Computed example of a mutant assay.
Amino acid sequence: MLYKFLFPSKPDGAAASTILLIVRIVFGVLLMNHGIEKWANYQELSTAFPDPLGIGSPLSLGLAIFGEMACSMAFIIGFLYRLAMIPMIFTMGVAFFVIHGNDPFAVKELAFIYLVVFMLMYIVGPGKFAVDHWLGKALTPKKA
């Protein structure tokens, strides 16, 4: 049993998919909390929120909330997984490289951690325990 744990022959098996599910839940909920905080304080934040894209503070805040809340929910359940991750990766990239670009690393470390985890999760995929996996199976034509 220990051998199978240390040297899995099926990296896409149930154990790996369980770990991916746990990572999706943990990091999705953590990022969603940031979005909920921004949403709860929208009125106060919308006037002073950074506008790195030049589209206005309220719209920049709205896009950050979308990336941190709606996309986190899709990330957690694995629905349109890679599509949902694009705004999450973009938001963390802007936070790390633009908003906190000149700050000490300790200030921008959290954005960097999210960015790395989300980029790795984008590459690896959601695993078997995701809505996309079940949709893919349902939409795949059956061989006669």
Rank of each mutant, 00 (worst) to 15 (best):
residue 62 G to N: 13
residue 108 K to Q: 12
residue 138 A to C: 01
residue 21 L to I: 07
residue 48 A to I: 13
residue 110 L to Q: 11
residue 107 V to P: 02
residue 124 V to Q: 02
residue 122 Y to D: 03
residue 139 L to F: 01
residue 20 L to H: 04
residue 77 I to H: 02
residue 21 L to D: 06
residue 67 G to Q: 09
residue 13 G to N: 08
residue 29 V to N: 05
residue 120 L to D: 11
residue 25 I to A: 14
residue 130 A to C: 03
residue 28 G to E: 03
residue 42 Y to T: 06
residue 55 I to D: 07
residue 38 K to Y: 09
residue 115 L to H: 06
residue 10 K to Y: 14
residue 22 I to E: 04
residue 76 I to P: 00
residue 97 F to R: 07
residue 56 G to Y: 09
residue 123 I to S: 09
residue 64 A to I: 05
residue 26 V to N: 07
residue 121 M to W: 01
residue 93 G to A: 14
residue 91 T to G: 02
residue 133 H to K: 03
residue 91 T to P: 01
residue 81 Y to R: 01
residue 126 P to L: 05
residue 86 I to G: 04
residue 87 P to T: 12
residue 46 S to V: 07
residue 94 V to A: 11
residue 4 K to Y: 12
residue 45 L to W: 14
residue 86 I to V: 14
residue 52 P to T: 14
residue 143 K to T: 07
residue 52 P to V: 13
residue 21 L to W: 07
residue 133 H to I: 00
residue 97 F to V: 13
residue 67 G to T: 13
residue 24 R to I: 09
residue 75 F to Y: 11
residue 1 M to Q: 10
residue 93 G to K: 05
residue 116 V to I: 14
residue 102 N to M: 12
residue 111 A to L: 13
residue 34 H to P: 05
residue 13 G to Q: 05
residue 6 L to K: 06
residue 41 N to G: 11
residue 45 L to T: 13
residue 85 M to K: 01
residue 126 P to A: 12
residue 44 E to T: 15
residue 138 A to Y: 02
residue 9 S to Q: 15
residue 62 G to M: 10
residue 47 T to M: 13
residue 12 D to Y: 01
residue 28 G to R: 04
residue 85 M to A: 04
residue 75 F to M: 06
residue 113 I to L: 15
residue 65 I to E: 10
residue 136 G to R: 02
residue 33 N to F: 14
residue 10 K to N: 15
residue 84 A to S: 15
residue 142 K to F: 03
residue 22 I to F: 11
residue 116 V to P: 00
residue 16 A to L: 03
residue 38 K to N: 07
residue 76 I to K: 01
residue 128 K to I: 01
residue 131 V to I: 14
residue 95 A to Y: 07
residue 7 F to H: 15
residue 93 G to R: 07
residue 18 T to M: 14
residue 14 A to L: 06
residue 14 A to K: 10
residue 64 A to Q: 08
residue 73 M to D: 02
residue 68 E to F: 09
residue 115 L to W: 10
residue 75 F to R: 02
residue 93 G to E: 09
residue 108 K to L: 05
residue 90 F to I: 15
residue 45 L to E: 11
residue 80 L to C: 03
residue 138 A to F: 00
residue 135 L to K: 05
residue 111 A to Y: 06
residue 112 F to C: 11
residue 27 F to S: 09
residue 81 Y to T: 01
residue 39 W to K: 09
residue 6 L to A: 12
residue 88 M to P: 02
residue 113 I to P: 04
residue 49 F to N: 07
residue 39 W to D: 11
residue 101 G to A: 11
residue 13 G to K: 05
residue 8 P to Y: 12
residue 21 L to G: 10
residue 23 V to N: 05
residue 90 F to R: 09
residue 74 A to C: 13
residue 106 A to W: 07
residue 74 A to T: 06
residue 137 K to D: 05
residue 134 W to S: 00
residue 16 A to N: 08
residue 90 F to H: 10
residue 130 A to T: 01
residue 106 A to S: 13
residue 105 F to N: 12
residue 84 A to Q: 02
residue 40 A to G: 05
residue 49 F to E: 09
residue 33 N to Q: 14
residue 99 I to D: 12
residue 39 W to S: 15
residue 89 I to C: 10
residue 132 D to T: 00
residue 60 S to A: 15
residue 89 I to M: 10
